[in-house]
Design a protein around this nucleic acid. Structure first.
Lengths: 114, 114
DNA sequence: AGTGATAGGTTCTATAATAGAACGCATTCC
DNA sequence: GGAATGCGTTCTATTATAGAACCTATCACT
């Protein structure tokens, strides 16, 4: 199969990956679960480029995983919130969290010389 | 943060993604759970390029998620098997499977004109 | 002994995705 | 009339992935 045809795959895991399998997507959703909802906050939290963040949010909205709505019209300001479909990714994220806690111990980042 | 520094992140989900967050990796592991163990079989099952498959398997072995061992020396033949660490990704994959079943209905692939 | 098949890769080039910085717009604050 | 904030888009450079070809070792057949 091809990566951009995962949505028609027989396997439900593959179909799930067609929505949440791209780089950064699952971490954006983790941030949603932590209460983050604004573009700037996702960007600061993750360090993902604005370009990619914009593209991922658009995709997640299209897929019905999150919703975008204006919390202010003047000035125009938006927030992204999990839909029920998005909230139901909670168990998957929780399982990844548990696994990470168990098997991926925290290692201090090596400080650069400069 | 940067994608290749996820392993030092404070968040266990991010640290998990440092191992299983790359394209195709979670689907390779799904295949492992389905009993697939050989290079050729992963490749046929997923359609991933041999280059990427090789790289992902190497990474998963390094991370201790799967083990490579020879099941024949003459001719040299190998199989990849889940370690306990890898088997403990079962709940995460199961959660993704459930979510995919629930929210991503099977759609027939549109047939090409040619 | 030569030919083809099988398994497990590596190497090569072309294309697609991501990184990183800059820019644009609307609005508010000073 | 700046400067700051929030939410993006656009641009170029670098990295990752796709797709095909190639290599090695062995066996099976003729």
């Amino acid at each position: 199969m091809k990566w951009d045809e995962l949505d028609t795959n027989w396997c439900p895991v593959a179909r799930a990956m067609s929505v949440v399998g791209d780089r950064w997507t699952l971490l954006i959703l983790r941030d949603c679960f932590l209460g983050i909802s604004r573009f700037e906050d996702f960007q600061k939290s993750l360090g993902v480029t604005r370009h990619v963040l914009s593209e991922r949010l658009k995709r997640l909205v299209e897929a019905g995983v999150i919703e975008k709505h204006a919390y202010s019209v003047k000035p125009p300001r938006f927030e992204y919130k999990l839909t029920p479909k998005g909230k139901d990714l909670g168990p998957a994220l929780a399982a990844l969290k548990d696994w990470g806690k168990m098997y991926m111990p925290v290692r201090r980042q090596v400080q650069s010389e400069n």
